[in-house]
């Protein structure tokens, strides 16, 4: 089962592909490219397809790349 773990980590679902911050940066970059190509803002699904990552990872990256909403102070600045 150590084998299974290793397999998962190296090739499978446990591979931590890149940090969420790096992915968020890629999302913004590709968003610019796609906006030019399409003449409109791309959808999240289109960004996921272009980057070859699941929508779920983009969602996590966009949430992880900003500080969590704090309730101590108002959420909006």
């Amino acid at each position: 089962l150590g084998e299974i773990r290793r397999h998962l980590r190296d090739d499978g679902p446990l591979r931590v592909s890149r940090s969420l911050k790096a992915l968020a940066q890629q999302v913004y970059r590709v968003q610019d490219d796609l906006s030019k190509e399409l003449g409109r803002e791309p959808t999240v699904a289109e960004l996921a397809a272009r980057l070859g990552v699941p929508v779920e990872e983009i969602v996590a990256a966009l949430e992880g790349s900003r500080p969590p909403a704090s309730i101590q102070e108002p959420i909006h600045e």
Partner: peptide, 9 residues
């Protein structure tokens, strides 16, 4: 934690 490879967020 072999995989705790610090892809830390």
């Amino acid at each position: 934690s072999a995989a705790a490879s610090g892809g830390a967020v």
